[in-house]
Nucleic acid binder design. Structure first.
Length: 740
DNA sequence: GAGCACTGC
């Protein structure tokens, strides 16, 4: 680092912000203790100002100030703003680092980054030797990485003797959060002091509705209701834009259609109190929308026109729309929950928490006083909505997290200092899976393979398959597939039936081109075809492929390749030779990573998973295997989707021999009740015979209901069938409302 | 015979 860059601290920061009058006390508070909790609502200026105050107070003489953010955009934009305030270019004294974009230099002393980036840094440098201050921001959001960092920082710096031995200038840890659960945070960090900064937001008055009560937990009636409320606002409230919160793309499109319809039938011009509002501009907003379409949302509406944005939760934290004065809150959100009892992730619609509802309401008070219309009753608020959102660490699969912790020397992952402990069975499940992948041994110690696996930003199963391929010298087959599976879905399926047919046709053709019924091979082929195309974006448009998603798959593939090359230069990188059929090489590599996701044909199109849960699953209609009448009896799959049925997606036929030796591994460490069939070493033929016998005992035709009943019986917790029941109920309601 | 919120490395 150059000395000149920090010898003369400039007078920094904006004096207008509420935080300014606390400047001296705040820097003193940081000096006085190892841990400090700083609270303050949005608009207090803590994210941009605190690092500058600390810089000015000389905290950078001995190292950097690192500030984490849960989101990339936040890290980048905040760094840009702070650089501007400190009158330097981004990448010099002030910089940022996010995945694929490192904008820092030797001069950088104030570094904004994503929480995932800091976690990676700790992996390489467990003492965080280049930092004098580490600031975790937006801790109240409880992102998985921030929660892990919180535990790690507590563990590393809690013991002052240990901390000061590490360097003559001990690291300061500042945790910044909205004014929620601050006592809990302080207690967690050795009862450290709490510093509160008043915010600067405008009051938002909230009203409850009558449409959704405790009995309407599974109702979709709320789409009609939010439309009605939005139009009421439009006809009776003074100027100011509306933001409506719904749960997903299809719901949003339906709401927008209804709004267009209804808006046309009412008078075009209103006299709202003393102001005239001419009309309403209706804009949908969700994550997978094209970026240029998203950009429209931020443009101010034409004079006299009211803007009405109908959005997913993306508008709650990720994107801020100016000029919003009215909120319509449906009270629901779509959330991905991991169910360890059945070993799958279930995406479901659930009521939001009270804190989330407050967050939504707050979106109306950023520039002036606002109003929030909740369509649910006070009773719903009291009885159905939890105080706080369950943190991600308690809802998610922990396999990758546990491996990371183990590689950081945290051997006892159950007694790691979690701010909120995940359920023990979630941790056990993760350990079991890591053992199955040979990432840890029987004693729970990380293997050589595990040390390699932790380097990859991928699901452990994918990493396992990739490393197998690399050891056999065929990584070119797996790198693109791993990249494609770690970005959002690349196949576009539009809402309109006509276009849907067209897209399906194109996708089927792409699958047919590979000559094999293997969805993984289709992904590889799409990747290669697009990459070698002269005009890749046009190619995507023509084939109904998500260009934005594919572009990120290209950069992920690049990154994976770089990591792999670096690891292969180590002398102990495994090398194997392959004796089997060359054409089967690809699928056999996949088996190494997906033997935990093996299913065997049961009856007709119903398959039975072999992971010990024995769940009944169906091939998803988007799979190239869906309408194939073949003899195949064994498949591996990438993921499970619970809707009208339990579907497996991205499927690949395999031979029993390829997984025969791996399957026992699934049951060696028996944490859960295992399916009785899978435990036995049997041949394919024997398996089929057994299955025929079983099938004869049952009804000739296995209905979805039977399958679900079976699943339900198997699991005391009925999350999967609950989810399905809810889905069916919603579908029925939708049909009823259509009929009306 | 199809229903994928949002992040992140």
């Amino acid at each position: 680092m150059s000395k000149s860059s920090r010898s003369k601290p400039k007078e920094v920061g904006s004096k207008q912000l509420p935080i300014y009058q606390h400047k001296t006390k705040l820097t003193q508070a940081v000096k006085d203790s190892t841990f400090l909790v700083v609270t303050g609502e949005t608009g207090s200026g803590k994210t941009t100002q605190l690092p500058q105050y600390l810089y000015e107070a000389g905290f950078c003489k001995d190292g950097r100030i690192g500030i984490t953010q849960p989101r990339r955009v936040a890290a980048i934009t905040v760094a840009q703003r702070v650089a501007q305030e400190m009158q330097c270019t981004v990448g010099r004294e002030v910089g940022y680092q996010v995945r694929f974009d490192d904008c820092t230099s030797e001069d950088t002393v104030v570094k904004y980054m994503t929480d995932g980036c800091l976690l990676r840094e700790i992996l390489a440098d467990p003492g965080l030797s280049q930092y004098s201050v580490v600031i975790l921001d937006e801790v109240h959001e409880r992102s998985l990485n921030t929660d892990i960092l919180l535990g790690l920082l507590k563990k590393i710096f809690s013991d002052p003797a240990k901390a000061s031995k590490r360097r003559h200038f001990p690291v300061k840890v500042v945790v910044m959060s909205a004014t929620l659960e601050t006592d809990k945070l302080s207690a967690f960090l050795d009862n450290c002091p709490v510093f509160a900064i008043p915010g600067r937001t405008f009051p938002v008055t909230c009203t409850f509705g009558t449409a959704v009560g405790p009995k309407d937990l599974e109702s979709t009636g709320y789409v009609r209701e939010v439309v009605k409320v939005a139009l009421d606002i439009h006809t009776s409230e003074r100027a100011g834009d509306i933001l409506v919160f719904l749960t997903g793309q299809s719901e949003i499109e339906r709401a927008c259609d209804l709004l267009y319809e209804k808006a046309e039938t009412i008078d075009y011009q209103y006299d709202v109190q003393d102001q005239t509002v001419d009309g309403i501009l209706i804009l949908p907003l969700y994550g997978s929308m094209p970026t240029d379409q998203q950009r429209q949302i931020f443009q101010p509406p034409p004079p006299g026109i009211r803007k009405c944005v109908v959005a997913t939760n993306i508008a709650a934290t990720s994107l801020t729309i100016n000029g919003i004065k009215y909120i319509v809150d449906s009270g629901f959100v779509k959330q991905l929950n991991h169910n360890s009892r059945v070993g799958m992730d279930v995406l479901e619609v659930v009521p939001i928490s009270k804190s989330e509802a407050q967050q939504r309401a707050g979106r109306a008070g950023r520039t002036s006083a606002g109003k929030c219309f909740r369509i649910y009753t006070k009773e719903f608020w009291e009885k159905c909505m939890p105080e706080y959102t369950i943190p991600e660490i308690q809802r998610t699969s922990l396999t990758a997290v546990v491996l990371t912790l183990k590689c950081l020397g945290v051997h006892d992952v159950i007694r790691f200092p979690y701010l909120d402990c995940p359920e023990e069975r979630f941790i056990l499940e993760a350990l079991k899976q890591l053992y199955q992948f040979d990432a840890i041994d029987r004693s729970g110690k990380v293997t050589q393979l595990g040390e390699l696996m932790v380097e990859f930003p991928l699901h452990p199963g994918l990493t396992r398959a990739l490393l197998k391929a690399a050891s056999l010298g065929c990584q070119d087959l797996l790198l693109p597939v791993a990249a494609m599976l770690s970005v959002e879905n690349i196949f576009i399926r539009p809402g309109h039936p006509e276009k849907q047919k067209e897209a399906d046709k194109k996708h089927k053709a792409l699958a047919a081109k590979t000559g094999s019924m293997n969805d993984f091979a289709t992904l590889l082929s799409v990747f290669q075809l697009c990459k070698s195309s002269d005009r890749p974006s046009a190619w995507c448009k023509d084939n109904w492929i998500h260009w934005r998603a594919l572009k990120s798959a290209f950069s992920v593939e690049n990154q994976l390749q770089e990591i792999l090359l670096r690891l292969q230069q180590k002398k102990d990188f495994p090398v194997e030779t392959f004796s089997g059929n060359k054409s089967e090489l690809f699928r056999q590599c996949l088996c190494t990573g997906y033997f935990t996701n093996v299913a065997r044909r049961s009856v007709g199109k119903v398959f039975c998973t072999m992971d010990g849960h024995g769940s009944m699953v169906h091939i998803h209609p988007s799979s190239s295997l869906f309408d194939q009448e073949t003899e195949l009896n064994w498949v591996i799959f990438h993921d499970v989707l619970v809707t009208s049925r339990v579907y497996i997606r991205t499927v690949c036929p395999i031979r029993y021999e390829w997984v025969k030796d791996l399957l026992p591994k699934l049951h060696e460490v028996d944490v859960y009740e295992l399916s009785s069939v899978a435990r036995e070493e049997v041949t394919d033929e024997e398996m089929i015979k057994w299955e025929m016998k079983e099938a004869a005992k049952r009804q000739p035709e296995v209905s979805a209901e039977d399958v679900m009943k079976k699943l339900e019986k198997r699991n005391n917790e009925t999350t999967v069938s609950d989810a399905r029941a809810r889905y069916l109920q919603r579908k029925q309601q939708r049909q009823q409302s259509k009929a009306l």
